[in-house]
């Protein structure tokens, strides 16, 4: 590893759920190169450590932001920052969703929980360049209504179809209940001319990608974003190995055609 983090100031902080916040960041001095949807940064919490976090907004979609779920030492530290605080950022790392390959085709986004974070800049980009794409569908699943991130914003997206479903409804929830894949029936897309973009917990990714394939979406047009331990993001620490893939270099976004056989091996 070589790169040193670049100081970024928290210019806005938006609580999303009980354990998740979005931090909008601006460089204190020199800026990093622009991020593309799907890429991630190594984000440093002073005295705690550094973790990989996807960009939930990129420079081209209104400024760099990260949406972080507090699950341990480093993510706790980052979620606890206040406006004005400084964090360190290295990046951009990893490949992108390659949304541009979907020009002229229908777009189908499937997100589970915080998996919506890395998909948000893709959705915003697709909606911004709406004419370049066919129909745009966004299917979102969460455990409970309280686990939905960017909830207000979702309603404002001018998609062809937006579906939101939860596993466990709460009082006052009038939306769908059940797994995210059951929304597929209502999405409007031509399977043989569709690009799908999927992120969420691994079981959800498998289920969604399999169903998409069953619906007739070509497996190499189903792009899934995977998570593995990453210490360096520069291809040197060895932690993100996933069979033949060094995920920080050739991922985190992988075609389902490549991911499926690997995900079918236990404990790979």
């Amino acid at each position: 590893m070589t790169a040193v983090p670049v100081p970024h100031r928290v210019v806005a902080r938006r609580p999303e759920t009980a354990d998740t916040v979005t931090l909008c960041l601006e460089p204190v001095g020199a800026a990093l190169p622009d991020f593309a949807p799907g890429q991630f940064a190594m984000v440093h919490s002073f005295g705690r450590g550094e973790i990989p976090v996807s960009a939930s907004s990129v420079q081209a979609t209104g400024g760099l932001a990260h949406t972080i779920r507090s699950v341990g030492a480093v993510s706790d530290g980052l979620c606890a920052t206040r406006v004005g605080d400084v964090v360190g950022l290295r990046g951009p790392y990893g490949n992108t969703w390659e949304l541009e390959r979907a020009h002229g085709a229908d777009v189908l986004v499937v997100a589970g929980g915080i998996g919506l974070a890395p998909l948000r800049p893709l959705i915003l980009t697709a909606l911004d360049g709406r004419k370049a794409y066919g129909r745009v569908n966004v299917l979102i699943g969460a455990r409970t209504p309280d686990d939905l991130i960017v909830r207000k914003e979702i309603e404002s997206w001018p998609t062809t179809f937006t579906g939101v479903t939860v596993d466990q409804p709460a009082d006052g929830w009038r939306g769908d209940v059940g797994v995210v894949t059951q929304l597929l029936g209502r999405a409007r897309f031509a399977p043989d001319n569709t690009w799908a973009f999927v992120c969420g917990p691994e079981p959800m990714i498998r289920a969604a990608a399999r169903e998409l394939a069953e619906h007739g979406v070509p497996r190499d047009r189903v792009r899934v974003s995977l998570e593995r331990n990453m210490r360096c993001a520069t291809g040197h620490c060895g932690h993100c190995q996933f069979g033949p893939l060094l995920l920080c270099q050739v991922g985190p976004v992988v075609d389902w055609a490549h991911a499926e056989p690997l995900l079918s091996v236990r404990e790979l």
Partner: peptide, 22 residues
């Protein structure tokens, strides 16, 4: 393969990033 560790001093205002074999 390597991993990284964060090592802070007592003041809490200085921190170091160390890499070690893993």
């Amino acid at each position: 393969c390597t991993t990284t560790e964060e090592v802070t001093d007592l003041t809490g205002d200085h921190t170091e990033r160390w890499q070690r074999w893993d």
